[in-house]
């Protein structure tokens, strides 16, 4: 049997999606079709490239984060069962935690999810970033300049 590409475990995927919502508040006028799938697909692409130990560490970190909400003062609820406001508060507490290790793990998680989130074309379009059009213009300009100097693009 041949190996398959890496898949994020289902429960970890749910937690990642909940974290992403708490990390970036989404206004109503932003519509991302298949948002969750698109985001997870991006996270998967990056996680697949990590060495096995780091990938496992990341997923364990996600579980731990979820569980710690239950253990540390969120009314015996896991992170994914909290209300949105409570999720935001808990996430904020973790990101600014006094313990360096907690902050460090959290900033790794945050980094990965944010990069994946902001790389979605709908998000780019929402903030007015349109690299495709820009690059097309620049390519045309380069062709013109090269022609002017008697060379092919």
């Amino acid at each position: 049997m041949s190996a398959k590409p890496y898949q994020i475990p289902k429960r970890a995927a749910q937690i990642i999606l909940a974290i992403s919502r708490a990390l970036v508040f989404e206004p109503e006028d932003l519509n991302i079709p298949n948002r969750d799938e698109a985001l997870l697909q991006r996270c998967r692409s990056i996680l697949q490239e990590l060495p096995v130990m780091y990938r496992m560490g990341f997923v364990m970190g996600i579980y731990l984060f979820d569980l710690c909400a239950f253990l540390f003062g969120c009314g015996f609820k896991r992170f994914i069962s909290l209300s949105y406001e409570k999720q935001c508060q808990y996430l904020d507490k973790c990101l600014t935690n006094k313990m360096f290790t907690v902050r460090n793990i959290m900033s790794g998680m945050r980094g990965l999810i944010m990069i994946c989130y902001f790389s979605m074309p709908e998000v780019s379009a929402y903030i007015g970033y349109n690299p495709n059009k820009h690059v097309k213009e620049r390519l045309a300009l380069r062709e013109k300049l090269l022609k002017g100097s008697g060379r092919k693009a």
Partner: peptide, 20 residues
């Protein structure tokens, strides 16, 4: 790919760009 940062990080960067 101009409009797909994740394609770039996962194909061109070590650890998908997530090295620490």
């Amino acid at each position: 790919k101009v409009d797909d940062t994740i394609w770039s990080t996962s194909n061109l960067y070590r650890d998908g760009g997530a090295s620490i």
